[in-house]
Design a protein around this nucleic acid. Structure first.
Lengths: 183, 183
DNA sequence: GTCTATACGGTGATAGAC
DNA sequence: GTCTATCACCGTATAGAC
């Protein structure tokens, strides 16, 4: 894949994650990516919306890998989820509460504002739900519940500048998943 | 309380809820509030940030009332939480997925961008956590967990344009709370 | 493919009359 | 207290040379 294009996507992901979609200007993305403005509209002819949509899907693919990795830490689904959440907590803290994925902010900003962006975010969340569902033996309901709690805990951890919400969620999700999976 | 000031706050809350903080212009707020631009800087001398911070706290107070009302539906904490979540699901659906409170979007947008706004969002979430904690007999951990899951479920419901995530969360939170409260 | 220059609208914010 | 006029700036997007 082309490097200039990829650099733009990665810079956009970082900035959208930190400050959101609307607070981020194309100039800022260009500056941080090192690529020229001319290239942006060459690779993304539909402009900022397209950059946003592709960023959402690309970063979801990244997250899927991290989720898979986190979940592989234990055979037991409950413990696996706990480890995943604890890993996220560390990542969020280590980043100075910038991390947590660009999706949450972009998703919240785009619900009724941009259909293209909203659709991309919807797909992105579906992608992230898949590995959870797999770990839970096809239990869609559990996967969706865990995803909701993780997203909420990431939000509150970032707002409170403390990984506590995520660590709390880790413990409770473990026991809930174990309860549902080992009746 | 002054009416022009209050009108501005309510218009801002509606707009921030629908499209976020940065996507909303002061002109738009003024237009919808019916108040003049001169008044905005008279009542909010610190400009947009102050409007945002006060909007967050005001709408948190609104939410506290709705949470209290929802939780009063049952003596049993688990059932009360379930009813609360189902009520939110209905509200979100009825609003065409605009509802869910201005806090989520503003909180996500402001984590590292504006200290004033971030602090207000932190306080706002603390306010909303209080009635849950009370219902759970002082169990801070449970209140925080429920709040995380509800926020995450609101986000996913809005993104997916479906109340399913919230209804799913309602059922699962009920059984989890019952498990923890009635050992 | 890359770069510069630029168009044009909207942004938050201020000044000063009333 | 309210309103208008206006500021300087930044946003996205485009045109056209190279």
């Amino acid at each position: 894949m082309n490097s200039a294009r990829q650099n733009i996507l990665e810079a956009a992901a970082r900035l959208f994650e930190k400050q959101g979609f609307h607070a981020t200007g194309l100039n800022e993305i260009i500056r941080q990516s090192g690529s020229p403005k001319g290239s942006l509209y060459y690779y993304f002819p539909q402009g900022k919306e397209q950059v946003g949509a592709e960023t959402a899907l690309w970063s979801a693919a990244q997250m899927v890998e991290r989720i898979r990795l986190g979940l592989s830490s234990s055979e037991d689904p409950g413990e696996a989820v706990q480890n995943l959440a604890l890993g996220i907590a560390q990542a969020v803290e280590n980043s100075g509460f910038a991390a947590g994925g660009p999706l949450m902010t972009m998703a919240a900003e785009s619900v009724l504002n941009s259909e293209q962006l909203n659709t991309a975010c919807k797909e992105a969340y579906a992608l992230m739900q898949a590995p959870l569902e797999e770990k839970f033996g096809g239990r869609t309901d559990l996967a969706e519940f865990v995803l909701c709690t993780l997203e909420g805990a990431i939000l509150l951890s970032r707002v409170n500048h403390s990984g506590n919400a995520l660590r709390q969620a880790a413990r409770k999700l473990k026991s809930y998943v174990q309860m549902e999976m080992n009746p």
